[in-house]
Design a protein around this nucleic acid. Sequence first.
DNA 1: GTCGCTGTAGCGAGCAGCTTGCGATAGCGT
DNA 2: ACGCTATCGCAAGCTGCTCGCTACAGCGAC
Lengths: 144, 144
Amino acid sequence: MLVREKAEPILALLRARGGRVTTSRRAILETLLGVAGHVTAEALTARVQAVQPDVHESTVYRFLDELERLGVVDHVHLGHGPAVYHLAADAHHHLVCDGCGAVEEVPDEVFADLRGRLQAEFGFALQPRHFAVTGHCRACAMRP
Amino acid sequence: MLVREKAEPILALLRARGGRVTTSRRAILETLLGVAGHVTAEALTARVQAVQPDVHESTVYRFLDELERLGVVDHVHLGHGPAVYHLAADAHHHLVCDGCGAVEEVPDEVFADLRGRLQAEFGFALQPRHFAVTGHCRACAMRP
DNA sequence: GTCGCTGTAGCGAGCAGCTTGCGATAGCGT
DNA sequence: ACGCTATCGCAAGCTGCTCGCTACAGCGAC
């Protein structure tokens, strides 16, 4: 399983920081690595519990927090619902439609001009990852 | 009181749509008009209750919703806390610092290039009002 | 005025999405 | 194998809103 190989260096990093590698954590990490794209904490918990039934929701939240501190994952708020988690290596930005909720991923490069401008004019280092950028998708823009 | 004059056309609009003007609603609207900038629903409720003690939190939420449907106010999520409400007429965007939580308001015009690009390349009509744009302010960008 | 239809109010309970305190358990360095 | 302590599962708690209910109060019509 490729996932297991990807998990090892992360677990090693965790250990190096004085953390402990438990069966729950291994299950959570491997599940997360096996998911393509976005997952909510709830969905991730459900998937983990399919393998290790008594891994608790709170354990998942605590470990995701830890992984975030290690720089392995990020969480993003796409709208009014739960946050979604994804691998930090897979960095990108999100356009979310206010009308239908559709999510489109866009490369960082699209934000280059804005980034330069905010830096120059406001000294602000843009990092638009934590919240999605909202608007209306092509289909929803047609209607009022 | 200037606020009372600004309230009237809005209340008239509300009435025209079949809504009713109650003392609670008048108090909420006048309080909102008297607040410069952003308020959370909770803070607004507290201010209203200083004048009309038994206006309930749920009434404030319901009326803010209504005002949002009328296009009078907008709510924005600046970060992980409660949403803030402000007058729709006072439209602008928000830069929020992930480090210290500082909020900077920027004119819409700064987003013009990005808007054009997202429109051209993705057919996406940018409306980045509902969620703040995150990053690091000058001070926080200095430190890791 | 006052009648009556119906939109709103206040209240309390409920809900989603997370967070926390706790005693028990299990990693991992020695 | 031992012991320190990080982490666990669990339940309860918290915040920020939302909803269902019944009584009340706008507002148009008479």
